[in-house]
Nucleic acid binder design. Structure first.
Lengths: 210, 210
DNA sequence: TGAGATAAGTATCTTTTGATACACACTATT
DNA sequence: AATAGTGTGTATCAAAAGATACTTATCTCA
């Protein structure tokens, strides 16, 4: 786990010493293995998870299809959990650990209390809502207006922009899930892109050209 | 405008007397006519509008298409404005008055200040984010997974559920805009629904059966 | 090494959605 | 009544997306 200092070096959002003390007092720490399901649709939560290390994937499922809502990385918390915990609503999404993850867990009732006491906590919460809302709005606009081949292109270029490498380690099936469509559709589009020399396809990864 | 008492009878969210006094001290009141455009994409805002009476429609536009994000009714504020004002971001949506509307306008810097001072204000802000997020998530799920004819049906039944009457006063073009598609598609679907005896079509309105 | 799992390629067919164009009806206004 | 604007019906065509089915390649691990 490391020392307290290490923890708040990672969780930079919480700058106030009093808040840090409170977090240490009330938090529990949880380790999740890759593939562990942390939240399910319909579930009520009475705690708030904040990721210290690792990555969670939050997605919705409809019968056979699923679609990515967002990822939760270090220093972030999960919107669905936040709503669920703050408002005593059930979650409308699933959360799964993509990597071995370390998670800080806080009792739900503290969320509202700290909101009034600690400006940095308050900002953290609002920031979470705002950035997730923006992400979702973006995704919504894409789904509503853009044909899939454009969304595929954007997904790939976005990935490359964030990760630096132009090799995207993702299977067609997984990409289909991210975009809410089926594997065959993705394979078809990627093949067309390859013919246009936009990508090169390999087993397990896609190389974006230029 | 009416008296102060009237105002806070409408804005029930703000129960604290101190908060009410602050609102009265800093607020300006704005009247919008039907069709007035209040927010445009790309615009920065330094104020937060809260609707007292009337209805605003917030939507996104892509070239020729547009799509509804949400409506803002009495006692509600506009997410896009909130983000824009709080975080000094530009708006990514448009807002237009659907009816003659009365709007309370607050300077942006007060949002964060009051967040720490007044629990009811804090709750108002969080509530706004949460409910808009849920709405959007819902819309997102629909667009991603459901064929248009289902979304049309849901739009109509939702309307009837909320308004009581089973006569929905909306043109095909407008409905197309709400759902992010084109008029011809809507006309076609409605005609099929009429043949299945699910609706009856009239000029300017749709009657939902059962 | 060989069996099973995962990944990818592809052909065929259907459905959904969109684009375009034109006709006609109703409404409001002059 | 003439006109313009809006609302609706509908036919035709094209494109996008999805469903299904079968094949081939690659990986993993017992």
């Amino acid at each position: 786990m490391g020392t307290t200092d290490d923890l708040f070096k990672k969780l930079k959002s919480f700058s106030e010493p009093e808040l840090q003390a409170e977090i240490l007092k009330h938090a529990k720490f949880l380790k999740a293995n890759k593939g562990d399901i942390l939240i399910k649709e319909g579930q009520y939560l009475n705690f708030l998870p904040i990721v210290i290390d690792g990555l969670l994937r939050v997605y919705q499922q409809n019968e056979d299809r699923e679609i990515l809502l967002y990822y939760v990385g270090p220093e972030q918390t999960c919107m669905m959990s936040l709503s669920s915990a703050y408002f005593d609503y059930y979650s409308t999404a699933n959360g799964i650990a993509m990597e071995p993850s370390e998670i800080l867990v806080l009792p739900a009732h503290l969320i509202a209390e700290w909101q009034l006491k600690y400006p940095s906590w308050n900002k953290f919460i609002i920031n979470t809502y705002k950035s997730r809302y923006d992400e979702l709005l973006n995704a919504f606009g894409s789904v509503a207006f853009k044909p899939i081949h454009v969304r595929v292109k954007e997904y790939l270029t976005e990935y490359v922009k964030n990760e630096g490498s132009n090799k995207i380690p993702i299977s067609h099936q997984t990409l289909a899930n991210e975009l809410g469509t089926t594997r065959v559709v993705i394979s078809r589009i990627l093949k067309q892109m390859e013919q246009k020399k936009l990508v090169k396809l390999y087993r397990g990864y896609i190389q974006l050209k230029i």
